[in-house]
Structures are given as C-alpha cells and as structure tokens.
C-alpha cells in the first residue's frame, strides 16, 4: 500500500520533518542519534539532496524551453513533459521553504527537429539518473517514494517522446 494519505503540499514537508518512522525494520535506514520530533528541521543530507534534484529539474526545464524556442513546432510535443517537471519542481521547492530556486545557465539547442529532440533525450536521461540517485540516497522513505515517482514519470515521458518520433 502507498504511504498514508498526504496532501500534495505537505507530503515532502512532513517527510523531511519526521524521518525514519520505519526504524524498527532491519533493512530500513538506521535510526538517528538524536530523537526526531515533527518540529525537527529536515535532515541535512535530505535537504541537500532535494536541492540537488531541484537544480537538476531546473536544468532539464531549461533544455526543454530552449528546444521549444529553437524549434517552435516541437512546443506542443514537449508540452506534457514540461508541465510534469513544473509540477515536480513545485512539490520539491515547497518542501524546502527557504530554498531559492536556482537559475540555469544558458542552453544552446540545435534548430533542427531531430538534433533538438536528441538534446532533449540526453537531458532527460541525465535527469533520470540524478533523480534516481536522490531516491536511493534519501534517508526519508516518503521522500524516496516521491523521487521514485518523479524518476518513473521522467522515464514515461522519454518513452512517449521516443514513440512519437518513430511513429
């Protein structure tokens, strides 16, 4: 069964604030030295991890934006993955209230459709690796689940884009 019902806004906040409810299990992460209460700040390693995934999403979004700008006919095709990543970002940024949204550097994408799609494909593959790494390293199980869903979504969109290109 999925975790307890959580609202979209509070999922990660509560995940980060109440880590390791699963400590009794032998394959779960070990319990922390200090006792955690709901008011405990996010575990530092998970805060840094969320920031890294946010930066990866911002970078991937910048590639999608650049591709849509370079090849306007791609904008509709890239719309679903851009929307998905915007929602991924919204949830993750909301989990770390004081985090600043990083800005991506300038991205150059070829103005031809196939090279532009190639750049998108490589960018999405890199994003998936980074999100996956975050999922595997997360101390919070709830955070790992959210990052796992983002990785699965990214893979789905890559598959859908590949299907559209070849059909």
């Amino acid at each position: 069964m999925p975790g307890r019902p959580l609202s979209r806004r509070t999922t990660l906040g509560s995940a980060l604030a109440a880590p390791l409810a699963l400590a009794a299990c032998d394959i779960d992460p070990p319990p922390r030295e200090s006792e955690s209460s709901p008011a405990t700040p996010p575990p530092p390693e998970d805060s840094a991890l969320v920031a890294a995934v946010v930066a990866a999403l911002v970078r991937a979004q910048s590639v999608l934006d650049a591709a849509a700008a370079a090849v306007p006919s791609l904008a509709d095709r890239l719309g679903p993955v851009r929307t998905a990543h915007a929602e991924h970002l919204e949830v993750l940024v909301g989990a770390v209230p004081e985090a600043d949204l990083p800005t991506a550097g300038a991205v150059s994408v070829p103005a031809q459709i196939l090279p532009a799609l190639g750049a998108v494909r490589r960018s999405e593959q890199r994003l998936q690796r980074e999100v996956r790494e975050g999922c595997l390293a997360a101390a919070s199980g709830d955070l790992a689940r959210v990052l796992g869903s983002i990785a699965a979504s990214t893979s789905q969109h890559s598959a859908a884009l590949a299907t559209e290109v070849t059909s």
């Binding site: 959580l6 999922t11 679903p80 991924h88 598959a159």
Partner: peptide, 20 residues
C-alpha cells in the same frame, strides 16, 4: 511505469503516487 506507454497508456506526472 514505462511499460504503460507500450500498452497504450499516457505518460503521467505522479505514477504510483496518485495523491500528489
């Protein structure tokens, strides 16, 4: 999640976490 696309499904935003 990826195999859903092979089976005619659409790519989603929160596969496996519908409450989000």
């Amino acid at each position: 999640a990826t195999w859903q696309v092979e089976l005619g499904g659409a790519a989603g935003t929160w596969p496996g976490a519908p409450e989000l």
